[in-house]
Amino acid sequence: MIYAFRTLVGQEKNVARLLARNVRNSDIDVTSILVPDTLKGYILVETPSKVDMQDPAFKVPNLRGSVEGEISFEEIKTFLNPEPVLASVKKG
């Protein structure tokens, strides 16, 4: 399951690192945290099962709660293989 969490814009990586540290020190089951450059103000949290968003592990500065609903793995795939910036510019 993949959930989106809102963060302060510009703090996505820091929030992801702090959340990862909390996860390692807790029982909460998070398998990865994704921060696509194209998604400002959000991080994507992958879990094998439903997680309790109220768990203290999610208490991280600049982490501003989860977005309602899950994100499909198909949607995530578009972030995993980002188009190279230069390759998308047509040669003229």
């Binding site: 996505e12 990586k13 998070v30 990865s32 994704l34 921060v35 450059d37 995993l80």
Partner: peptide
């Protein structure tokens, strides 16, 4: 590099498997 991924549990992460990552840690997407 760009994009950022923290892999905590590669064996149970679909994202890690999609990217052929089998060690925990921090990764770039591109």
């Amino acid at each position: 590099w760009s994009g950022f991924l923290i892999v905590l549990d590669p064996e149970n992460s679909g994202i890690a498997q999609e990217l052929n990552i089998n060690l925990p840690g921090e990764y770039a997407l591109r």
